[in-house]
Design a protein around this nucleic acid. Structure first.
Lengths: 176, 176
DNA sequence: GTCTATACCCGGATAGAC
DNA sequence: GTCTATCCGGGTATAGAC
């Protein structure tokens, strides 16, 4: 389980988030982070054991944010799956580098804050009617759309709104 | 357009593919590639202008292989979409590092061999009945499933066969 | 077309003084 | 808890001799 952080540790994690969102995962180095906060690189190691701990702290915060955003999106919505898809796509396109860090590498769940990943996933499971297989398929669809869009993999003239709509329709409870 | 390669250039690209598949994109460096082929690192630059050219040559070969595999999979199949999904999943899990190189970064299409990407995509467009939006949605689903599986993002007890089946059903012509 | 040598970046992380 | 100094590794790429 991740240790509690000192105030300086929190400051470092917050600065890492800003640096990540500005420059991408490659730009997030211990040296550059230290520079931003105004300390030297070795000092960072007094607050965080290593770089993986830093990354997992950023990811944990992001999952917690996602959980809040997704819960708000489905709250009172008639089309819960559609509302969720919109919120998912919005999060990914608003925070592309963060989204990439969260999703495109193997995740050491033991280093995340407990429960944050499940909290982010819960609204989707509910929106597809509790079917775990459908939830995983829908997540794969949403992740595929989001990451291919971030990476510019679709042709420039592709109608991505239409592709999203086609996929959402496919996973509504009762469909297929 | 990519230049033609010398025999040594072809040897380097083939060795890069082997190195990539064995050790992942991080293990593919010009130094290590040269070592494998039995030359020094600077010699590589006599045959390939830079690392991006090497990567794009590997990716072009892989798309061409995909196109052959996908065409064979749909040939004579009753359930073309199902056959294609099986072939797609098989390619990704048989060549995870190669698949990651092909799909998880922005792609400079001008450095690929002309037509290879379209050839790999064509069977899917046909299998969903020519609907481009459905084809993109189905591709996003398949890519999401493949890459999340490669990255170990699903829970260990998840029934991925069932999730694949649920998604495939969603994108069959006429569904949703 | 190959080599040696090297320039010039970057990274994570540690030792030990203060 | 901060610093300076360093160790270790990695990488792409070029110059110039043969």
């Amino acid at each position: 389980m991740p240790d509690e952080l000192s105030p300086r540790g929190r400051e470092l994690v917050a600065a890492a988030r800003v640096l990540l969102e500005a420059e991408g995962p490659e730009g997030l180095s211990m040296r550059r982070l230290a520079e931003r906060v105004g300390v030297t690189a070795p000092s960072v190691y007094k607050h965080l054991p290593d770089k993986a701990a830093l990354e997992h702290a950023v990811i944990s915060d992001a999952f917690a944010e996602m959980a809040v955003a997704f819960a708000a999106a489905v709250d009172g919505a008639g089309d819960r799956l559609g509302a969720l898809a919109t919120a998912y796509r919005r999060f990914a396109s608003a925070h592309p580098h963060l989204y990439r860090l969260m999703t495109t590498r193997p995740l050491d769940r033991g280093r995340l804050r407990a429960g944050v990943e499940a909290a982010a996933a819960a609204p989707l499971v509910a929106a597809v009617g509790g079917d775990a297989d459908a939830a995983r398929a829908a997540w794969a669809f949403a992740h595929g759309m989001a990451i291919l869009e971030i990476d510019g993999r679709f042709p420039p003239d592709a109608d991505l709104d239409a592709a999203w709509a086609r996929g959402i329709a496919a996973f509504r409870p009762g469909a297929a």
